[in-house]
């Protein structure tokens, strides 16, 4: 089997240069590639375009990269929990493209499926539609949205094997498998890296063909954004 293993996050992201376009998996802080984000902050790569559903919080996730002014442009659907993001946006330091969440997801899917564009009704008649081709199918209008073109996709999985097959856990799956399919180079960090043969082929969410580099992650904080619980009696 082809071996995709690299030593750590620093090695995995070593060739990500200034000005590149990155996809980062996760929803809120759930399932984000913590190790690679920390390595990018350490490396200080700048002028990045980041495609990610959210922008982290002020002191965690992509928020750490925003604070260092490493991000030139964010492409996201919801950025509400990040005051520094909002400040940079309103002051014009940061460029942002807000797009509907389903459009974001499906543009990833299209890239991973080798389809140049998709049609979606999301955003018809709104400012999201400005400058976009509208097509009518069976009496309903749809916007044409292009597949993403990202230099790197960085995802986090629960388990992976040395040839890059990935399994995700619970709702930390979210954007990770579809971004994994969509990057020109896909980097996966995993909580548990195993040898080939240890994962059941029937249980693989992302086949290793989509993954170029994989490493055993460490020290996961897995911060909870909104801790909501019921009292025990």
């Amino acid at each position: 089997m082809i071996n995709k293993v690299v030593a750590n996050a620093d090695e995995a992201i070593a060739d990500i240069m200034d000005g590149k376009t990155l996809m980062l998996g996760g929803f809120g802080l759930c399932g984000i590639p913590e190790n690679c984000i920390a390595a990018l902050v350490k490396k200080g790569t700048r002028n990045l375009t980041c495609i990610s559903n959210n922008a982290g919080v002020d002191d965690f996730g992509i928020g750490l990269m925003l604070k260092q002014h490493q991000v030139k442009k964010m492409i996201s659907s919801y950025v509400g929990e990040n005051a520094e993001f909002e400040r940079q946006l309103l002051s014009g330091e940061l460029e942002v493209e807000l797009i509907p969440q389903g459009t974001l997801a499906t543009r990833c899917l299209a890239a991973g499926y080798g389809m140049p564009a998709i049609f979606t009704p999301a955003g018809v008649g709104t400012e999201v539609a400005e400058g976009k081709e509208v097509r009518n199918f069976d009496g309903k209008d749809y916007l044409m949205e292009y597949a993403f073109d990202a230099d790197f996709a960085i995802v986090k999985a629960w388990k992976g094997d040395t040839t890059g097959n990935l399994i995700f856990r619970s709702t930390s799956r979210n954007f990770n498998p579809i971004m994994a399919m969509a990057g020109k180079i896909t980097i996966a960090e995993v909580e548990e890296l195993v040898e080939v043969g240890e994962l059941d082929p029937d249980h693989i969410h992302t086949p290793g063909v989509y993954v170029h580099r994989i490493f055993q992650g460490k020290d996961y904080e897995k911060r909870i954004e909104q801790r909501t619980v019921r009292k025990r009696d």
């Binding site: 929803f27 809120g28 802080l29 759930c30 399932g31 929990e81 629960w158 856990r169 619970s170 709702t171 930390s172 897995k222 911060r223 909870i224 954004e225 909104q226 801790r227 909501t228 619980v229 019921r230 009292k231 025990r232």
Partner: peptide, 23 residues
Amino acid sequence: GPFPLEGDEDPDLINAGKQTITT
């Protein structure tokens, strides 16, 4: 499902409002 019982919250299991939930 409902919010988890105290101590059972799982960071990998949230809803669209980023709240911890259950299946």
